[in-house]
């Protein structure tokens, strides 16, 4: 029983990482209507920027805020320069440009900061909270930040005109133009937000997995699994999905002997496929109902 509890809490802790990433995934999906494979690399790159600022002696929260701001601008700039010119190209061309971005960011990060593992500080106290050792202060802090982000996004999307305009632009660009929405800028804004959230996710994850250019691919997959499990159209679902993936991963790894450490990534695969089989729009996602 104690082992179970321990693994459950560990699952919630890692689930926080995935939830954070899943949120970024859903964010970009909401604004551009497809999935950005370079998102993990963007987050990794942002984290390196934070690391660099810290190395130059910036205070943590100063570096944090600057990184988020820079990432936001970077996201907008990437959309305006790389993706605006190919707006009308087939989806596959976009995917190839994502792949190109992936290799550029990964390569430049490795070239600039080298491929050696770096440690990244946590803003939260390192001593165990309330004397328990099951879940660290960093884990709790990370979960807290995820929840705060979620609430902010919820307010943005459900209760502001800007959020409504962004959703409309993603769902039906042509009609959005017909009500006067500047669709191009909404998409760019979505990129900016996704990049900023990714940066936060990266800075929260880096103290746990350490900083290196390839830190994000596995996490992106888990984040993806979380987003799909929860439903790509629902930020709340994505966060719950992220936690669910973390918990299932830990419990399955401990209690199902064949799985162990080796197959953890495969769990994500099985989860994605299983959920998609039963409920193609995810557990919390809304199906677009439309009449022909």
């Amino acid at each position: 029983m104690e082992l179970f509890l321990h693994q459950l809490l560990a699952g919630i802790a890692t689930g926080g990482i995935y939830a954070c990433m899943a949120l970024a995934v859903v964010m970009i999906y909401q604004s551009i209507d497809h999935f950005n494979f370079a998102q993990g690399e963007m987050a990794m790159f942002s984290t390196y920027i934070a690391w660099q600022l810290l190395a130059w002696g910036w205070p943590y929260w100063g570096a944090f805020a600057a990184t988020v701001a820079l990432s936001f601008i970077g996201g907008v700039v990437i959309e305006r320069t790389l993706f605006k010119p190919i707006r009308n190209a087939p989806v596959l061309s976009h995917i190839v440009v994502f792949i190109a971005m992936f290799s550029i960011l990964n390569s430049v990060a490795g070239f600039t900061w080298e491929y050696t593992i770096k440690s990244f500080p946590s803003p939260f106290p390192s001593e165990p909270l309330f004397g328990n050792r099951l879940i660290s202060a960093h884990d709790l802090g990370m979960i807290g930040i995820t929840v705060v982000l979620l609430v902010l996004l919820y307010v943005l999307f459900r209760h502001t005109r800007l959020g409504l305009a962004m959703r409309a632009a993603a769902a039906n660009p042509e009609s959005a133009r017909l009500v006067g929405i500047r669709v191009g800028w909404m998409v760019a804004l979505g990129w900016g937000l996704a990049a900023a959230i990714g940066a936060i996710a990266g800075m929260m994850i880096a103290p746990i997995v350490f900083l290196e250019p390839n830190m994000m691919l596995g996490i992106l997959l888990y984040g993806l699994a979380g987003a799909v499990v929860g439903g790509l159209t629902s930020p709340v679902g994505a966060v719950i999905g992220g936690f669910a993936v973390g918990i299932v991963e830990n419990l399955a790894g401990t209690f199902i002997p064949v799985i162990g450490k080796e197959l953890k990534l495969t769990i994500a695969l099985v989860l994605i496929v299983a959920v998609l089989m039963i409920k193609p729009s995810g557990l919390f996602g809304r199906t677009a109902v439309s009449r022909v």
Binding site: R161, L164, R167, A168, N172, E174, S175, A176, G180
Partner: peptide, 25 residues
């Protein structure tokens, strides 16, 4: 204001959100 052929409904948004979008500017 252009009411397009095929109506241009935002199918995933609610009726009220659709109306709100009309007044977006």
């Amino acid at each position: 204001a252009h009411v397009p052929e095929g109506r241009g409904t935002f199918v995933r948004l609610t009726v009220e959100e659709n109306l709100g979008l009309g007044a977006m500017i």
